[in-house]
Amino acid sequence: MNDIIIILLAGFTTGITTVLFGFGGGFIVVPFVYHIVAGPPGLSPHAMHIAVATSTAVMVFNAGWASVQSGRAGRLNTAVLFPLVWFIAAGAVGGSLLAALLKDELVRALFILYLIITLADCLMRKGFITRPQPRKLSGTTVRLGGIFIGVVAALLGVGGSVMTVPLLRRHGHEMRDCVSAANPLSIPVAVCGAVTYSLAGLHAVPAPGYSGFISLKILVLLTASGFCGMLFTRRCIPAVPDVLHARIYVILLLAVLMAMAI
């Protein structure tokens, strides 16, 4: 029962962060699922793969719904989304295949390392907390940056928001616009990751209720509670000022780093 309550709270929080920060699952879901499945002996050897796989599946629903809502509100900038989304999708295929070859503890270590690098970049380099002058993404950034985002995001199950938000922010976009773009840019990562983990984990987890490495029970609970969290955010939480929005983003990254490291 305690685990179910934890999952529901994590899902509800994920729904909130999806709308406010473009985090469709990874940074909230991965630490919670990891700690839940790391205990049982049969699941512990695959705990990180289960957490990442389930996270990517959750992101398909969360990022998809948030993208539809942003599209209806006219907040999606197609000039930013294309062709970046295609290069992220290409990278996501490679990242998903690579993740299936890595050991569980290595994926966890990479997850923590990536959080540290992202936090240091946001805090130590100018251009994130305070928005710079708008400028267009270069062709090299779109191609190489998009592939890199796709590989890392699919490998770690974090979606693309943790990289696309800082990238777009440093090119002069408001946090609201960065988040609106982050959700559709996370969809190819989520789809590629979910399919790959489902196939790569066939017969690997000695427990019922799994599609490969994806926990179907946790997926349903997270998706349902996440939907409630997104509705709550849309209707009850007012717009956040731009600079405060950026600062909360950094604080959230730090909280997840501490949870995963401990």
Rank of each mutant, 00 (worst) to 15 (best):
L102F: 14
A90Y: 02
T140Q: 05
P238E: 10
S186G: 15
G150A: 06
R131V: 13
L115G: 07
P166A: 04
A194T: 15
R234A: 11
L119V: 15
L137G: 15
P134H: 07
V220Q: 08
T54H: 06
L81W: 03
V189K: 01
P83Q: 00
A224P: 12
F87G: 08
R235M: 11
F87L: 13
M230D: 09
T140S: 10
W86A: 14
L20M: 11
V189F: 01
L202H: 14
K103R: 09
L119E: 14
V191F: 09
P41V: 09
L98W: 05
S211L: 15
A224I: 15
D177I: 06
F23H: 07
S215H: 12
I116T: 11
L219P: 13
L8Y: 01
P132Y: 12
L167Y: 00
V256P: 00
I237K: 03
R235E: 11
F61L: 10
P241G: 06
L113R: 01
I28S: 08
G159R: 04
L9E: 06
L76T: 09
G39Y: 07
F23G: 04
A261Y: 14
T140L: 12
V205D: 12
P132S: 09
L221C: 13
K126L: 04
M1W: 01
A73L: 13
V33C: 02
I129V: 15
D242R: 00
L199E: 06
P184C: 03
P83L: 00
A182H: 04
Q133P: 06
V29P: 09
V29T: 15
V152M: 14
P45L: 01
C236P: 00
L231A: 08
I28R: 04
A10D: 01
R169G: 15
A259F: 00
E105D: 15
P40R: 02
V243M: 07
T78D: 04
L20G: 02
A246S: 15
R169I: 05
G42E: 14
S96M: 05
C192G: 02
G74T: 06
I214R: 02
L20V: 11
Y210R: 07
P83Y: 00
S180R: 07
P238S: 09
C228I: 14
V37Q: 07
I214Y: 06
T233D: 07
I6R: 00
I7E: 08
L244W: 11
G201A: 06
G71R: 10
M59C: 04
V19D: 02
V152D: 09
V52Q: 02
G146W: 01
L231P: 00
Y34Q: 06
I4P: 12
F148H: 09
G42C: 02
